[in-house]
Measured scan of single mutants.
Amino acid sequence: MSGIALSRLAQERKAWRKDHPFGFVAVPTKNPDGTMNLMNWECAIPGKKGTPWEGGLFKLRMLFKDDYPSSPPKCKFEPPLFHPNVYPSGTVCLSILEEDKDWRPAITIKQILLGIQELLNEPNIQDPAQAEAYTIYCQNRVEYEKRVRAQAKKFAPS
């Protein structure tokens, strides 16, 4: 494992614990031996107030490669969400998460999670990743928002 990646992720964890947006979660997972795995984080993004996503808490896994922060983490909703920019596998399609697009090593975990929260309610229809959600979003916004509200209710924190 890269010392650069681990040191950056340790800084990220410290900064997150000191200050993070209300309702968001970002925690490194534990290895079988109980030690912390900084390369694999369990996160959760709350649906934004005043949107059909409100009330939901959407679980996301963030996986970092050894060359982080040169390369972005892979962000994957578990379980996958109904959304035009979420692949059926759950992987998020967002330009700041793509090395050859808008990724920059200075982007923080907090910025990534806030960017994904923004994307939930403002899909990028130029870059669809899920045919069904994309089609319904474009053709029947009322039905799309109904499905999103049902999903938010399903993923409401207990």
Results as ranks from 00 to 15, higher is better:
7 S>P: 14
40 N>Y: 09
96 I>A: 02
85 N>S: 11
109 I>H: 04
155 F>P: 02
142 V>T: 13
30 K>W: 03
34 G>K: 07
82 F>E: 05
14 K>Y: 06
15 A>Y: 15
98 E>K: 14
92 V>S: 09
53 W>G: 00
135 T>R: 12
125 I>Q: 07
76 K>F: 15
131 A>Q: 14
34 G>L: 07
3 G>H: 08
43 C>Q: 03
82 F>P: 03
37 N>V: 13
48 K>Y: 02
158 S>C: 08
90 G>R: 01
32 P>F: 06
39 M>N: 11
146 K>E: 13
25 V>Y: 08
62 M>Q: 04
115 G>C: 06
71 S>P: 07
86 V>M: 12
141 R>V: 10
81 L>Q: 01
132 E>G: 11
54 E>W: 07
62 M>G: 04
76 K>M: 13
55 G>V: 07
25 V>N: 04
142 V>F: 12
120 L>E: 02
79 P>G: 14
50 G>T: 05
41 W>Q: 05
76 K>P: 01
62 M>F: 14
154 K>A: 12
52 P>H: 14
100 D>N: 14
112 I>L: 15
146 K>Q: 09
144 Y>M: 00
63 L>A: 11
66 D>R: 02
30 K>P: 09
36 M>T: 00
16 W>K: 05
3 G>T: 08
21 P>E: 02
95 S>T: 09
70 S>E: 09
69 P>C: 03
117 Q>I: 07
126 Q>H: 10
53 W>R: 04
127 D>N: 05
66 D>A: 11
153 K>H: 08
109 I>M: 11
105 P>N: 01
7 S>M: 14
43 C>Y: 05
80 P>H: 12
80 P>A: 14
70 S>T: 12
2 S>G: 15
112 I>P: 03
146 K>L: 10
61 R>T: 13
156 A>Y: 08
72 P>E: 09
148 V>G: 02
76 K>A: 14
18 K>S: 09
8 R>M: 11
34 G>P: 00
90 G>K: 03
2 S>F: 14
53 W>K: 01
27 V>W: 06
59 K>P: 09
143 E>A: 12
76 K>Y: 15
80 P>F: 12
89 S>P: 10
111 Q>V: 14
84 P>M: 14
113 L>C: 13
99 E>A: 12
30 K>T: 07
32 P>K: 14
104 R>G: 04
91 T>I: 14
68 Y>W: 07
46 P>E: 07
155 F>E: 02
57 L>W: 08
92 V>L: 14
88 P>F: 09
97 L>Y: 05
154 K>F: 04
72 P>I: 01
115 G>F: 01
94 L>T: 03
86 V>Y: 05
138 C>L: 07
139 Q>F: 07
57 L>F: 08
158 S>A: 14
17 R>A: 01
151 Q>K: 05
68 Y>H: 08
24 F>V: 06
66 D>E: 12
98 E>S: 15
112 I>S: 07
136 I>S: 12
148 V>C: 12
62 M>E: 02
73 P>V: 14
4 I>F: 08
88 P>T: 14
67 D>A: 12
156 A>E: 13
131 A>N: 13
105 P>M: 09
57 L>V: 08
145 E>N: 15
127 D>G: 09
10 A>F: 11
133 A>M: 02
22 F>N: 04
33 D>E: 07
106 A>D: 04
144 Y>E: 02
73 P>R: 03
45 I>G: 04
65 K>Y: 09
54 E>M: 12
105 P>R: 05
52 P>R: 09
116 I>W: 03
12 E>T: 01
96 I>G: 06
155 F>K: 06
157 P>Y: 09
145 E>R: 14
3 G>R: 06
105 P>T: 07
102 D>P: 02
147 R>D: 01
20 H>A: 00
18 K>F: 06
64 F>D: 05
138 C>V: 08
93 C>T: 00
55 G>T: 05
75 C>I: 15
75 C>T: 07
47 G>K: 03
27 V>F: 03
50 G>E: 13
3 G>E: 12
150 A>Y: 13
99 E>K: 11
23 G>E: 09
145 E>Y: 12
22 F>R: 00
153 K>C: 09
147 R>F: 03
58 F>C: 05
147 R>Q: 12
90 G>V: 00
100 D>V: 15
148 V>H: 01
44 A>V: 08
60 L>H: 05
57 L>Q: 11
42 E>W: 08
81 L>C: 05
79 P>R: 15
115 G>Y: 06
148 V>A: 09
72 P>H: 05
40 N>F: 07
149 R>M: 09
56 G>N: 02
38 L>F: 10
95 S>E: 05
88 P>A: 14
28 P>K: 06
130 Q>G: 00
18 K>R: 14
27 V>A: 06
22 F>H: 08
81 L>I: 13
11 Q>R: 13
48 K>Q: 09
58 F>Q: 07
14 K>M: 05
49 K>N: 13
137 Y>R: 03
41 W>N: 08
120 L>S: 03
75 C>Q: 01
41 W>I: 04
80 P>G: 13
29 T>V: 07
65 K>A: 04
153 K>M: 13
142 V>G: 13
129 A>I: 02
108 T>G: 10
107 I>V: 14
154 K>T: 11
113 L>I: 12
29 T>P: 04
132 E>T: 08
84 P>F: 02
156 A>I: 08
48 K>F: 11
63 L>I: 12
73 P>H: 03
75 C>Y: 03
133 A>N: 01
77 F>I: 04
105 P>K: 00
139 Q>N: 11
95 S>D: 01
42 E>Y: 12
107 I>E: 11
84 P>T: 10
58 F>H: 02
140 N>C: 04
133 A>D: 03
76 K>N: 15
138 C>Q: 11
126 Q>F: 09
89 S>Y: 15
95 S>K: 04
158 S>P: 13
101 K>A: 15
65 K>W: 02
21 P>G: 04
65 K>M: 15
103 W>S: 01
118 E>S: 07
